[in-house]
Simulated scan of single mutants.
Amino acid sequence: MMFTNENGSQRTLILVHPKSNHGGSKRPSKSFKEDQAALDYALEGDEMLYIFEDGSVYLMVRGARSGADWGASIAESFLHSGLELNKSEVLGMCFNEDAEASKAFIGELVDYVIDHHQQAIAP
């Protein structure tokens, strides 16, 4: 599936830039076309750079792989990626088998909606 950002530019690749370990060494950076391949390679704390054909780059730091931290991380990625939200993907995450992740995901989305609603009605 090809992702398109708000100005119509398509994503060309995902660059995973691993964090350094305690000894100062790190795994090599790798680029991927597919989300799942990038997520499989990335470990907690690794930077994931989503690069689009117009030169725009969106950064996400790989968080936990399950639980509330993971759900919140995925919601932040949805909200701050600049990508058009796909309702079926959002609903799929809401009904994820990991109940804690789903609750955190929904909580982040609700906080976002409340914050934007308050900003819209503020004088």
Results as ranks from 00 to 15, higher is better:
residue 54 D to S: 07
residue 25 S to K: 11
residue 91 L to H: 04
residue 54 D to C: 08
residue 50 Y to Q: 15
residue 81 S to P: 00
residue 70 W to I: 00
residue 12 T to W: 05
residue 91 L to Y: 08
residue 21 N to A: 10
residue 10 Q to R: 14
residue 16 V to H: 05
residue 107 G to K: 08
residue 54 D to T: 05
residue 9 S to P: 04
residue 107 G to L: 03
residue 53 E to F: 01
residue 62 R to D: 01
residue 18 P to H: 07
residue 30 K to M: 15
residue 45 G to I: 03
residue 59 L to F: 05
residue 121 I to C: 04
residue 109 L to E: 08
residue 120 A to W: 06
residue 113 V to K: 14
residue 40 D to M: 10
residue 48 M to Q: 11
residue 21 N to P: 01
residue 10 Q to I: 10
residue 72 A to Y: 00
residue 118 Q to Y: 12
residue 8 G to D: 13
residue 40 D to K: 14
residue 86 N to M: 09
residue 59 L to P: 00
residue 15 L to H: 00
residue 45 G to Y: 04
residue 91 L to S: 00
residue 102 S to W: 06
residue 108 E to F: 04
residue 69 D to C: 06
residue 42 A to D: 02
residue 26 K to M: 09
residue 93 M to R: 09
residue 8 G to I: 15
residue 13 L to T: 08
residue 30 K to R: 15
residue 98 D to Q: 05
residue 25 S to V: 12
residue 80 H to S: 07
residue 43 L to N: 14
residue 93 M to N: 13
residue 121 I to M: 09
residue 16 V to T: 08
residue 48 M to P: 00
residue 109 L to Q: 07
residue 73 S to A: 12
residue 58 Y to H: 11
residue 56 S to C: 00
residue 34 E to L: 06
residue 120 A to H: 10
residue 71 G to N: 05
residue 21 N to M: 09
residue 3 F to T: 11
residue 14 I to H: 03
residue 107 G to Y: 04
residue 41 Y to Q: 10
residue 70 W to F: 05
residue 36 Q to L: 14
residue 53 E to I: 09
residue 16 V to N: 08
residue 26 K to D: 03
residue 45 G to E: 13
residue 11 R to P: 04
residue 108 E to R: 14
residue 52 F to Q: 09
residue 122 A to W: 05
residue 109 L to A: 07
residue 13 L to D: 08
residue 113 V to L: 15
residue 95 F to I: 15
residue 44 E to A: 12
residue 99 A to S: 11
residue 46 D to G: 09
residue 76 E to W: 03
residue 121 I to R: 10
residue 122 A to V: 04
residue 42 A to R: 02
residue 21 N to V: 08
residue 110 V to I: 15
residue 87 K to T: 14
residue 116 H to N: 15
residue 70 W to D: 01
residue 27 R to T: 02
residue 11 R to H: 02
residue 82 G to H: 00
residue 12 T to Q: 13
residue 35 D to Y: 06
